[in-house]
Write a protein that binds this DNA or RNA. Structure first.
Length: 288
DNA sequence: AGCCAGGACTAAT
DNA sequence: ATTAGTCATGGC
């Protein structure tokens, strides 16, 4: 099936799926493979639109929502501050969208992310999925993809089982989060209706979830565009590009600057900065 | 061998 | 209120 895309509205499947937001996707022979909850997808971007195959019928709304195809990035970009470096990052990553992930999958992914390279997070994600997720088949390709296990499934495991997937000290964090989510002690969908600060407070109440991971969950799965995750890359960007004269800025001051300077769609801007820095480094990045 | 990777927690100042 | 040490693991 082909989902038509307007050429005038920028969309890049490569950038959106491969910019460190979600860890379930892999590209083989020009086709992206992955699962969104319990539906497996194969995706290929073509000039006329997005070609897709899925493990179940009638999944177009799932895809449109996940890839945010119902929004026009121009409506968001015009809220960005105008500065040369951000403009360069936006220009270089035209079509990069903030995904709308499942909150549990997003929370699990970023609990696994701390102090890990993206490729390794993907490897852990794959092991967990293959061990305890559901096998899904995309008939057109007779291929099998595994879903990421629901919170109730993880909650029943032993910490030692999770550690065998290579997640180390993150295992008890993931297990504890799974228990909170599956019992309803933490109701992730309810966080949507809360102000960002209140939703963040509930997330950071989880062991192993601090400001950065909470902000990733808020931004990538709960529509909180003002959440601005600061990881090692973004920290370098702010220090080198935006506050080059100010030495000895602590984490809180950097966060303070980012929240005020980038505004209510700051999280979206953050993703352009992150991906640009990760792809190009910052050695030749000069604010001119 | 040492350092870093989309961090967070605890204990010691 | 800030800072160092610790927590696993893999890649270079």
């Amino acid at each position: 099936v082909i989902l038509p895309l307007k050429p005038s509205v920028p969309f890049s499947l490569d950038l959106s799926l491969n910019s460190g937001q979600a860890f379930s996707w892999s590209k083989r022979e020009g086709v992206w493979w992955g699962a969104i909850r319990n539906v497996a997808f194969a995706l290929k971007q073509r000039p006329e639109g997005l070609e897709y195959w899925a493990s179940t019928p009638n999944v177009k709304p799932i895809l449109v929502n996940y890839l945010a195809l119902d929004e026009d990035p121009a409506d968001i970009l015009r809220h960005f501050p105008t500065d040369p470096f951000l403009s360069r990052c936006v220009q270089a990553n035209r079509g990069l969208r903030i995904l709308r992930q499942d909150p549990w999958e997003c929370l699990a992914g970023f609990i696994l992310s701390s102090c890990k390279q993206i490729t390794h997070i993907q490897a852990i994600w794959k092991k967990v999925s293959e061990n305890w997720g559901k096998p899904l088949t995309v008939k057109a390709h007779h291929a099998t993809i595994y879903s990421f296990p629901e919170s109730a499934v993880i909650a029943r495991l032993e910490e030692s089982q999770l550690r065998k997937c290579g997640m180390g000290f993150r295992a008890p964090y993931l297990l504890n989060a799974a228990k909170h989510v599956s019992t309803g002690a933490l109701h992730l969908e309810n966080l949507r209706s809360l102000p960002t600060v209140d939703a963040r407070a509930q997330l950071t109440a989880l062991n192993g979830v601090g400001r950065k991971i909470a902000d990733c969950v808020l931004l990538f799965s709960l529509d909180k565009m003002d959440a601005f995750p600061i990881d090692t890359w973004i920290s370098k960007v702010i220090r080198k590009i935006y506050l080059p004269k100010k030495r000895k800025m602590n984490a809180k001051q950097i966060q303070q600057f980012a929240d005020t300077y980038f505004g209510k769609y700051g999280g979206y801007a953050q993703q352009y900065l992150f991906h640009y820095a990760r792809m190009n480094g910052l050695n030749d990045a000069i604010l001119d």
